[in-house]
Design a protein around this nucleic acid. Structure first.
Lengths: 219, 219
DNA sequence: ATAATAATTTAGATTTGTCTAAATTATTAC
DNA sequence: GTAATAATTTAGACAAATCTAAATTATTAT
């Protein structure tokens, strides 16, 4: 596991949140979210791109790669666990916790976070109702639908990968599927439960059942 | 209250610890304690000197000013409270806590630390037996002696100021007395309990009872 | 008391993350 | 479909914290 600077972590986290609403994240979106000049965003996106944390194409915007998303989810996990701690154990008001958690989230010690999680009783939602990702990076949000459940012709957005093992990440990377990718089901084959899909309105792909069962989506 | 960078805080904390053993802290002492090149230390000492956190004279070394010492004590407080938390609440082994606390100590939110202190039950020593400074910056170490208690002719080192109010700090700054200053009592006047002392074998000063009662010392 | 050695500082360079102003590419309006 | 406008990138600069190599100041050994 690699370590990122607090600045890089803030970028990853912000891209992650913006991406949940808008698929592709633009330079200006990031600039206003991070209160930085657009030129600074461009510089950092190039850096993150070189580290394979985001996919970045000049003038188009960026999306997180799977390793970028995994890192972002780790940061969200730390943030929300600290918020829970501050509110439940230290008696902070709910409005105050965010600011302090913004600092604590950058203390990156795996054991610290896992012990904290245990100390808090493995909470799955923070007091805002937002889900706290578990130690494996899984986000338990309300109703969980996978690509398997999506009918033909319908479109949805990838929200999560159900399995963080290297083999699946490699395959999804090759197929250019990541968190935020828009997927439309073209045809489903009952014979082997595989399916033909179109990703981001561009490339067409054939997915096995094993794969589509591990791709979590929302509409 | 001002905020310092994590780097500045590490310098202040290290100077504080070194000073407890050796009065004046040299560039090389700091370089080996911080694993940095001596040239880097010089640069930072100039910076801290400009901010009035240390007294620095080229080729001689440095000591903390009172505001530098106050900041350092705050950092030590945060460090030891986190160590206590990690060991008592999260079940860390005692050898592991230091490293994690090194990161947590730089999260500088006053309310966080005071709430944490309360949550932990206001512990006064950490599991190492080292004292945890209280919210006012007072360090409760074993037997506490003030300058008032020091007999004529005897010499001692200033360890702590019993009162962090602006008026006393201003006065001590003018008199060039700080943590680590060596003080010898020249004469005590029973009439008003004031005393004549010599500081750092250099300047001679007259101190009122109010002042000498607030200057804590060790031999 | 001077020469050799050790400690410290200066000078100049590097990395990270940022900025402003100018140039370039995309988008929108007509 | 071209002109105006908006978004983005490039170029060049800066501050913080660090480094190495060279110069300077202190210390020590004889």
């Amino acid at each position: 596991m690699v370590n990122y600077s607090a600045t890089e972590e803030n970028y990853l986290k912000t891209i992650y949140h913006l991406q949940q609403q808008a698929g592709i994240v633009t330079t200006n979106d990031l600039a206003s979210a991070l209160h930085s000049a657009p030129a600074s965003i461009t510089d950092m996106l190039k850096k993150l791109s070189k580290k394979k944390l985001v996919q970045y194409k000049a003038y188009y915007g960026c999306t997180l790669t799977l390793s970028g998303a995994a890192a972002a989810i780790g940061i969200v996990r730390r943030h929300r666990l600290w918020e829970y701690f501050l509110s439940q154990k230290l008696g902070f008001n709910w409005e105050e916790v965010h600011e302090v958690a913004e600092e604590l989230e950058h203390v990156s010690n795996q054991k610290l976070i896992d012990k904290l999680d245990e100390f808090l009783g493995f909470p799955r939602v923070d007091p805002h109702g937002d889900p706290i990702p578990d130690a494996e990076g899984r986000v338990h949000q309300g109703s969980q639908m996978t690509l398997m459940d999506l009918p033909e012709k319908k479109t949805a957005i990838v929200t999560q990968i159900g399995n963080q093992s290297a083999p699946i990440l490699e395959m999804l990377n090759d197929k250019n599927i990541t968190i935020g990718t828009k997927i439309q089901v073209i045809k489903k084959y009952s014979f082997d439960h595989s399916m033909e899909v179109k990703a981001d309105n561009k490339h067409q792909l054939h997915l096995t059942r094993e794969l589509s069962q591990n791709i979590f989506i929302k509409n």
